[in-house]
């Protein structure tokens, strides 16, 4: 196709913009080459990271096979490794964090799109996004000096009075509960802003139609907006889950660093990312390094799976905007 023969439909326009067409001289070819190299580099980086982790993990994969994920015995002194405790800790902290963050995040999203007073929507939106901007290490500092002492001195003793398998053991301050709370705060902006964008993408005709039929604002949300956006909202939750699973520094500060499977929220635990942060620099045996890398490999696979799934659910540009340019203008 020659450039002069521009198609009438804008849908096909990009085809006309293909840079493979050499008629326009070397500038285009250079542009195409530079762009392709730059874009290809990103792919190369991803492949390098993946290959590197697999390569490091190989001795452990060969040695332990699938049983690696079925046992919680993590004993570097005896060179025996199993990742179950980290999988458990990661799942536990992420699930508890989402239990706390999802209702609040969805509430915030609905406030921002439908229920909140208009003049408040924009500033609240900006503030929630600011929450996402605070560095992980600052969350860790705050958690260690504010949240953990509070948990130890008042919240955990109060919860212990309720009893049950979730609230057993001495109040330590640090542990699964503390990490979960911090994670909840950290994933909340992701869930809130992505949900906000998903809800805002529901066509206004639907809202107007329902309102014209006499629906209240809550009826609109409940009966029209949320059912229409269900897939996207699920995607927002998955995205939040992906973030929670990968979070490292804040969790490493307050998780209590203990490779154990326990149902109690008071118990210290470990997550996949925080064990890598703690042990990777000081692992002395080759198998220990490989086992940590294998934990990393699992972390890689899990986070990628969640992100790709979320990406499929929250389709299109809205999702891209939500993550990259949360412009605080919706």
């Amino acid at each position: 196709m020659t450039p002069s023969a521009l198609p009438s439909s804008s849908r096909e326009a990009p085809r006309a913009l293909r840079i493979t067409d050499a008629a326009r001289g070397s500038g285009d070819r250079v542009f195409g080459a530079v762009g392709a190299v730059a874009a290809g580099f990103l792919g190369l980086v991803l492949v390098t990271v993946a290959v590197c982790v697999v390569h490091l993990a190989w001795p452990s994969i060969r040695e332990t096979g699938l049983s690696f994920f079925g046992t919680s015995a993590w004993d570097p002194a005896r060179d025996v490794y199993g990742a179950l405790a980290f999988v458990w800790g990661t799942a536990m902290t992420s699930v508890v964090a989402l239990c706390l963050a999802v209702p609040i995040g969805l509430g915030v999203a609905v406030f921002l799109t439908d229920l909140g007073p208009r003049p408040l929507r924009r500033p609240v939106s900006s503030l929630v996004e600011l929450l996402a901007a605070i560095p992980s290490v600052v969350y860790g500092l705050w958690a260690a000096f504010v949240v953990a002492p509070l948990l130890r001195s008042s919240i955990e003793p109060a919860l212990a009075a309720i009893g049950g398998p979730l609230f057993r053991g001495p109040p330590m301050g640090v542990g699964i509960l503390c990490a979960s709370i911090v994670l909840a705060i950290m994933v909340l902006p992701t869930i809130a802003t992505v949900s906000r964008d998903v809800l805002a993408a529901v066509p206004s005709e639907l809202r107007e139609g329902a309102l014209a039929l006499g629906a209240t604002s809550w009826d609109v949300v409940r009966l029209v907006v949320v059912p229409h956006a269900r897939r996207g909202l699920f995607g927002a939750v998955l995205l939040g889950f992906g973030r929670a699973v990968g979070e490292t520094i804040a969790v490493a500060t307050v998780i209590g660093s203990r490779a154990d499977v326990s149902l109690s929220l008071f118990a210290p635990g470990y997550t996949m990312s925080s064990v890598i942060a703690n042990e990777f620099p000081s692992a002395t045996s080759d198998l220990h390094v490989a086992a940590l890398a294998e934990v990393g490999l699992l972390l890689f696979v899990v986070t990628v799976a969640f992100n790709v799934a979320a990406r499929l659910l929250v389709r299109g540009e809205r999702y891209g905007r939500a993550l990259t340019v949360p412009a605080g203008n919706r």
Binding site: G43, V53, I276
Partner: peptide
């Protein structure tokens, strides 16, 4: 060049890489 095969692959890679925990980048 949004419709080239490379572009599609790279867009997917960008999504994946954005989700990779940064600790693994460090490793």
């Amino acid at each position: 060049c949004r419709h080239t095969r490379l572009a599609r692959a790279v867009r997917f890679c960008a999504d994946v890489l954005a989700g990779v925990p940064s600790i693994l980048v460090g490793v």
